[in-house]
Amino acid sequence: MRMARSSAVVFTDLDATLLGHDDYDWQPAAQALALLAAHDVPVCIVTSKTAAEVAALRIALGNAHPFAVENGGAVAVPQGYFDGARCDAQTPVALTTLGAERDALRSLVIRLRSEHGFRFTGFGDMEIDDVAEATGLDKAGAAQALDRSASEPLLWQDSQAALEAFSAEVAAAGRVVRVGGRFVHVLGQAHKGDALAWLRARYERAHGPILAVALGDSGNDADMLEAADIGYWVARPDGSYHAPATGHIRHARGIGPAGWAEAIEALIAHHEI
Rank of each mutant, 00 (worst) to 15 (best):
M1S: 15
A8Y: 07
V9I: 15
V10N: 02
T12L: 10
T12C: 13
D13F: 07
D13P: 14
H21T: 13
D25V: 01
Q27V: 03
Q27P: 00
A30V: 05
Q31S: 11
L33T: 04
A34E: 13
A37M: 02
A38E: 14
V43T: 14
C44L: 14
V46Y: 04
T47H: 05
T47V: 08
V54D: 01
V54E: 01
A56W: 09
L57F: 02
I59W: 03
I59H: 07
A60P: 00
G62D: 10
G62T: 10
G62R: 13
A64K: 15
P66G: 09
V69M: 15
G73L: 13
V75L: 14
V75Q: 10
V77R: 03
V77S: 08
Q79H: 13
R86T: 12
G99K: 12
A100V: 05
R106T: 11
L108P: 08
I110N: 09
L112W: 09
R113T: 01
R113Y: 02
G117A: 13
F118C: 01
F118N: 12
T121D: 11
G124Q: 14
D129W: 04
D129F: 06
A134S: 15
L137M: 14
Q144S: 08
A145E: 03
L146T: 13
L146D: 08
W156N: 04
Q157Y: 01
S167M: 02
E169V: 02
A171G: 14
A172V: 00
R175S: 05
R175E: 01
V177W: 03
G180L: 06
G180I: 09
V184S: 05
H185I: 06
L187D: 04
H191L: 07
L196I: 09
L196H: 07
A197S: 14
A197I: 12
A197P: 03
W198M: 12
L199D: 10
A201Q: 13
Y203I: 07
E204V: 09
R205N: 12
P209L: 02
L215F: 04
G216N: 08
D217Q: 07
S218D: 13
A222H: 15
A222I: 05
A227H: 11
I230A: 01
G231S: 07
D238F: 00
S240D: 05
S240M: 01
A243N: 07
P244L: 03
G247Q: 10
R250G: 00
H251G: 05
H251C: 07
G254M: 07
G256P: 03
G259R: 10
E262M: 10
A263T: 01
I264H: 00
E265D: 07
A266Y: 02
L267Y: 01
I268S: 01
A269M: 05
A269S: 15
H270Y: 02
I273S: 02
I273G: 02
